[in-house]
Simulated scan of single mutants.
Amino acid sequence: MDVQELLARYAAGERSFHGIELPEADLRGANLGGVDFGRVNLSGANLTGASLSGANLSQANLRGAKLHRANLSEVILSGADLRQAALTTANLNESDLSGASLNDADLCDANLHMASLSAANLQGANLSGAKMGGVRMWKADLQWADLTGADLSEANLSEANLTGANLYATDMSETFLTGTIMPDGFIHL
Rank of each mutant, 00 (worst) to 15 (best):
I20N: 00
S118R: 13
E159A: 04
A86C: 03
F17G: 05
S95D: 02
A80N: 07
G29T: 09
L72H: 02
D184W: 00
F37T: 04
N31A: 15
S43M: 14
K66D: 07
N56Y: 11
G33W: 00
F186I: 06
D106A: 12
L42K: 12
R15D: 10
N31V: 15
S118N: 15
E14Y: 07
R69F: 11
A90W: 08
R9K: 15
L52Y: 04
G38L: 04
G134L: 10
G33N: 06
D146A: 07
A160C: 09
A70T: 12
S158C: 10
S78K: 04
V35G: 02
F17T: 07
G13C: 12
Q84P: 01
E154N: 12
L122A: 13
A110F: 02
A125I: 08
F37G: 02
A55M: 01
A125S: 13
Q123W: 15
S95C: 01
A115T: 11
G44Q: 05
D81A: 09
S16G: 00
L162S: 10
A11L: 09
N56T: 12
G19M: 01
L62R: 08
G19Y: 01
I187T: 14
L107K: 08
A11H: 11
L107I: 05
A60L: 05
K131A: 13
I20C: 00
E5V: 14
R83Y: 10
S101T: 07
L57P: 01
Q84V: 10
K131P: 02
S51Y: 05
N161Q: 14
N161F: 10
G44H: 06
G134C: 10
S128W: 05
M114V: 04
H68V: 08
A169Y: 11
D141E: 15
L6S: 08
D36T: 04
A25E: 07
A115D: 07
R39N: 06
G38V: 00
S78E: 10
L67G: 05
G34M: 09
D109Q: 15
G44N: 04
A65T: 02
G64P: 01
E5S: 14
A150W: 09
A45N: 05
M1P: 11
H188I: 00
L32Q: 05
S43W: 11
T180A: 15
A70C: 09
A119C: 11
N111Q: 03
G164F: 03
G64A: 04
F176D: 07
S118T: 13
S16V: 11
L142P: 10
S73L: 09
H113T: 12
A165L: 13
A12L: 08
L127T: 08
S53H: 08
S51M: 02
N121K: 13
G124H: 11
A110I: 01
G38M: 05
T175H: 04
G134D: 09
G64L: 02
V135W: 03
L87W: 03
D36K: 08
G49D: 03
D26I: 09
E21W: 05
A140V: 13
Q59P: 00
M172Y: 00
G185S: 14
A130F: 09
H18E: 10
A119P: 00
P183G: 11
S173G: 00
S173H: 02
A85G: 11
A65W: 02
T148H: 14
A125M: 08
P183L: 13
S43E: 14
I187V: 15
S78F: 03
G79E: 02
S173R: 13
C108Q: 15
N31D: 15
